[in-house]
Amino acid sequence: MHSSLPARVPGALSSSAAAPETVSSLSLLASELKVLFQRRRTWAMLLALAAIPVLIAVAVRLSSSVPAGRGPAFLDRITQNGLFVAVTAMLVSVPLFLPLTIGVVAGDTIAGEASLGTLRYLLVAPAGRVRLLLVKYAGALVFCVAAPVTVALAGAAIGGLFFPIGPVTLLSGDVVQPPEAALRLVLIAAYLSLSLAGLSAIGLFLSTLTVVPVGAMAATVVASVVSQVLDQLPQLEWLHPWLFSHYWFGFADVLRQPVLWDSFASNAILQAGYVAVFGALAYGRFVTKDVLS
């Protein structure tokens, strides 16, 4: 460490005083979330995500009926049941829109502070680099939860407004009542939040590499696109189970009867692996980094 700033040793921090430590960690997280959700950028992204189901619903409402089996999956079910607006919107936003917003938030975590010149003040304040990293990642995770939930809520709301809400036909052909269907929607949102945890960790690591936030954001989005492209190539079949985007579309397993939990479990293990690897990389980079700005 050649930094002029005191980089803290994590062990020394945690052993000093436990009780005030946790309080300040929470307040640190609270202030991080406050900053995150007071940004116009964050609200603009959430609004853009909420616009997806609205666009879908309006388009389906204005057009004639969608022939079965055409367009994105579930699109033809919307006119019968408004809840499918939420499902279709989540399906449509998985490949690009959700990774895009996550890339912006996760890529900004460290690099954003560095570019604003506020990173060194954060480190001078009794935050500690490890804790700062953890708090930043927690903030990104909160956004990972907020983004799919926004799509689901907006979809259910606009679907309920435009179309009838009734029993939902699952992929297996079985029919469930609206309360259980709502539970399945929540499960899908949870699945997507989990799916984005690995990408957030990648974004966090990339963000420690640079002081240009746009670079980290773009690199994160590119990583998600590359992963999805690789997942389409049959020649790389051995690689597929290792790609963080491999189970992204597995959320459809929640819509089977009985629920198929295999992809949920596989996805959780895979994302945990990515969080561990890129978390460790981010730790290695961040605690050895010369913070000059």
Binding site: M1, A7, V277, G279, A280, Y283, G284, T288
Partner: peptide, 16 residues
């Protein structure tokens, strides 16, 4: 502080 490579240990250990 004298041994920054120690900080990279987790990054090597986790994939291992």
């Amino acid at each position: 502080m004298s041994r920054p490579w120690l900080r990279w240990m987790p990054a090597a250990a986790v994939p291992a």
